[in-house]
Amino acid sequence: MSPLLEVEELRRSFSGGRTLFGPRKPDVRAVDGVSFTLGRGETLGLVGETGSGKSTLGRLVLRLIEPSAGRVRFEGEDVTAASSSGLRAMRPRMQMVFQDPYGSLDPRMTAAEIIAEPMTAHGVRRAEAMRRAADMLGRVGLSPAMAARYPNEFSGGQRQRIGIARAIALDPALVVLDEPVSALDVSVQAQILNLLADIQARSGVSFLFIAHDLAVVRHVSDRVAVMYLGRVVEMAPRDALYGAPRHPYTVSLLSAVPRPDPAKERAKARIRPIGEIGSAAALPSGCRFHPRCPRARLVAARGVDAVQAAGTRLPRACVEQDPQLSPAGGGAHLAACHFPDEA
């Protein structure tokens, strides 16, 4: 059986525009050739820092924005080539939950109206949709008696429950969740994460879970993809990625996360990337992580063929060749690094 979702070489660049009298600015390659698959009932976590392209990728998958190149297949159908009516017919099966439980709900609609809206838009009669919306409130842990309340009468966690109810109202096969808990307090985050796990266990829905919080992503994901400047640089089953990361960027991300354990925190040797994430408007040559890569510096110091770059000496391969996502470490573990076996 084919996977639920197949993404092939997806790209999106945004025009850099023009300054008032200056030259045209370079295009921003927000998503720069990303491929992955997602199985039924599976959760793929997508992590990355600001500017990595993870949110753009989530929107491209649902074709909320148009790709510049590449293809998305969902339940065997080509999403990227679909006509507007074809896309409309797929919409009930692929939904999205947004980060901001404040901005993403229409303040003039009641909770039940918000949840019913996608149902009526797809032909469910209003009375039936409103009845089902009240049921949905119960399914996401709210009281059906809250159906007539407006978003401002709910807490942040309750609003996110409404957003989730709306997304699952039409029994989708795929939900893209873009930072669904990062605006919530920690005690409320756990409520929402448990709710999502419960929904998935009952309905078999697949999640593309986009977040910057590595602990949250580990908690929810079966597999994890790490993005850096528009590319997936590492993708592996959850335990392989967290237990034996192969890409130096993943290694430094995991090293940077502070653990709520003073003894471990103080004993930890930290592996730091140098500086900050670059710009997708001015991608480095070769491996896009090379200007920040601690591993490249170590490898060069050991005497491989090296060149002058980023103010130091780095392996020629890192500076000149763009590494492809390839098997590293066995199983389904992939990394885009010229030296994936280095510690």
Binding site: S187, V188, A190, L193, A215, H219, K264
Partner: peptide, 20 residues
Amino acid sequence: SIPEIDAPAGTMLAPIAGSP
């Protein structure tokens, strides 16, 4: 209630019910 990056896989979170 917080997911820990080093916790054994499959650890359940125990959320605090309600809100402040």
